[in-house]
Design a protein around this nucleic acid. Structure first.
Ligand code: ZN
Length: 629
DNA sequence: TGTGCCGGGCG
DNA sequence: CGCCCGGCACA
């Protein structure tokens, strides 16, 4: 115990866990919001767990499953407990039909993407209560915060925090949909049991929102005014046990943010997994989101005031990050297919082992103007607008037709002149994989891509030297997207769209919704190799300092407290090695010595104990190809 | 002290 | 090449 506890304690706040919901004896996903009491000889530690649906509850550590807490392996699962298992290489969500405690086998009802249900028996240790790994995207469901990733998985082995799974993604927004389905039950329970409803929605969303909101605010320098929370929820329900929200408007964000990490959040929901998802992601998502409101109280209703909506502006594009490739697709499926086909020379419909594809593309959000700057330029070029929701789903090809539709975003208030930039720098070689054709120069794959170069000199704060961003869009039609939305790209998946920003934004109507997504960074990002034609983007975020791990309580709002894993991800996402003084990189006496990137590599992520999960390069002690900085 | 990975070595 | 690992710069 001590050990555990200790572990948990440090950066436990923000850790994704599954907490026991006393009312029904099942575990629900959420995150540690704070620690109420320490563990003592006579009693176990108590934490405030904020469930994904918005509820907050005090839970004893022994009733928490997750990194630093109880392993799933020792947890009795009730009928209907939602769980995640790996099926055919991908994570799927299912519900427990029964758990034989004697042999610790669990009969799980799994619903395939195609909709059919079937049962499977798993050892308890192979069952996760939280969604893990990569799955988010691949899997069908969604939600993913990467935070989840780690989760429970550790049960079996302990610790690994999972990050291991590389998964990245977060995205709440998307999740929503999923939640709708699965969680629905969850929600219901909550409502009925406790009453809160609104919050639940926002639970999912909030993360993103927060993030976004935070960013927005920051950038705009607007202060968060009061409005938000309230509306958000709509009416606040009753008191709910928790505070319904945090004191600060954003506050809620903060917490959530944590999990999602910066913005990382939004992953998409499930989209990807099934090869064809009929609906567009976004659309469903939105809808799903709100849906069922069970009980009644929820605000609901259509207007959506509460919920966010994402639909409208959000748009996410997926850009291949393969060395010189600039392929962009509207769906992750499409991009993964592209990667498999083009870069891995594989059958496009067969996933690579370990979903390696995921490591080779990033998401770009195009939401409303967040990025405007960049966009602006683009806009100038094309003037297009982002497409709406539906588009997302189409594959690249289809994408092309994205047409510009209307420009929704822009007019809002643009943020200040800062620039958003991206991030992600290819930096050195990509080692292992040589791709056959990555086109380096501009066209990349060929299709009609537009290549963009953005160079910026910094207007102020951003970078010290300018950096250039080069983007190419493949789909011909797409140009707009970028323009319209900002694009945030992060490393591999970790980020996603956040579009929905928020309640606040919305409600105010005038608020800039998307405004800033990203940020600009105060510091300079470094340029890196540039010139050559490689693509590079550097991005600068505000660097969040890696927070010291110890924050427990919730400080103010935005600071994120993440679990280690999350933080990890987050970092990776941001990865700009901010700390590095640009100058450093060059000096070189011949030796290479590069400033070490902040990104955690396989070794750190998976740990020595899971060396088998490391990318090959890491195994060989070569430069990691999975977590490239 | 731990991490990332260059440079080499070996089969 | 694939696979390992000594060793070193960093953090
Ligand atoms: Zn690696």
């Amino acid at each position: 115990m001590f050990g555990n506890k200790r572990l948990a304690k440090r950066s436990i706040v923000g850790t994704r866990v599954c907490g026991l919901w006393p009312q029904d004896g099942r575990y629900y996903p959420g995150m540690i919001q704070s620690q109420v009491s320490e563990e003592s000889i006579t009693s176990s530690a108590v934490y405030v767990v904020r469930f994904d649906d918005g509820f907050t509850q005090h839970v004893k550590s022994r009733c928490i499953v997750g990194p630093g807490f109880q392993p799933v392996a020792t947890t009795p699962l009730k009928h209907k407990q939602k769980v995640f298992i790996t099926l055919n290489g991908r994570e799927v969500c299912g519900t427990v039909l029964c758990h034989d405690r004697d042999i610790d086998e669990v009969v799980i009802s799994v619903r395939t993407p195609s909709g059919e249900d079937f049962e499977t028996v798993r050892k308890l240790e192979d069952v996760r209560l939280l969604e893990s790994r990569k799955s988010a995207r691949l899997v069908d469901h969604p939600d993913t915060d990467y935070s989840k990733l780690a989760d429970v998985q550790l049960s079996a082995n302990n610790t690994p925090v999972a990050d291991a799974n590389k998964r990245r993604m977060p995205s709440h927004v998307i999740d929503v949909p999923m939640m709708a389905s699965l969680d629905k039950s969850e929600r219901n329970r909550r409502q009925r049991s406790t009453v809160e409803d609104n919050s639940d929605d926002f639970g999912d969303v909030e993360m993103m929102d927060e993030t976004i909101a935070a960013m927005v605010l920051t950038s705009l320098s607007v202060s968060p005014k009061s409005p938000p929370p309230v509306n958000y929820y709509g009416h606040t329900p009753q008191k709910e046990q928790l505070d319904n929200h945090y004191p600060y408007p954003d506050s809620h964000l903060s917490s959530s943010v944590a999990s999602s990490g910066f913005y990382s959040g939004p992953s998409e929901r499930d989209d990807h997994s099934p090869p064809l998802a009929p609906l567009s992601e976004s659309a469903p998502a939105c809808m799903g989101f709100k849906p069922p409101t069970p009980g009644g109280s929820d605000d609901d209703s259509s207007n959506g005031s509460g919920r966010l909506l994402i639909c409208e502006e959000e748009d996410t594009l997926y850009k291949c990050t393969w060395r010189g490739c600039k392929e962009i697709a509207n769906t992750s499926n499409a991009i993964e297919r592209h990667i498999r086909r083009v870069h891995f020379d594989r059958d496009s419909d067969i996933e690579l082992t370990d979903n390696e594809e995921e490591f080779h593309y990033t998401e770009i959000d195009v939401t409303a103007q967040s990025i405007n700057n960049i966009t602006r330029s683009f806009a100038a070029m094309n003037t297009s607008s982002p497409k709406e929701a539906p588009a997302t789903e189409q594959p690249a090809a289809a994408a092309s037709q994205a047409h510009t539709g209307k420009p929704k975003m822009d007019q809002l208030r643009p943020m200040p002149p800062k620039m958003p930039d991206y991030q992600h720098i290819p930096r050195r070689r990509h080692i292992s994989e040589g791709s056959p054709q990555a086109g380096i120069g501009g066209s990349g794959t060929g299709q009609g891509g537009v290549a963009f170069h953005h160079s910026h000199g910094q207007g102020g704060d951003t970078v010290g030297g300018g950096f250039t961003t080069e983007i190419a869009f493949v789909p011909k039609g797409m140009s707009s997207s970028l323009g319209s939305g900002g694009a945030g790209v992060f490393d591999h998946d970790y980020q996603r769209k956040f579009s929905k920003q928020g309640p606040q934004a919305q409600h105010a109507s005038s608020v800039p919704t998307s405004a800033s997504l990203f940020h600009e960074s105060p510091r300079a990002s470094l340029p890196i190799t540039i010139s050559q034609g490689q693509i590079q983007k550097s991005l600068s975020w505000q660097t969040h300092p890696p927070s010291p791990a110890g924050i427990m309580v919730s400080p103010p709002q935005r600071p994120n407290k993440l679990t280690p894993q999350e933080r990890l991800m987050q970092h990776q996402a941001q990865s700009p090695k901010s700390s590095v003084p640009p100058s450093a990189f060059k000096n070189a006496p011949g030796h290479h010595r590069r400033p070490r990137s902040e990104v955690r590599k396989c070794r750190k992520v998976y740990g020595m104990e899971h060396r088998d999960q490391w990318c090959t390069q890491c195994k060989w002690k070569k430069a990691c190809t999975r977590f490239v900085d």
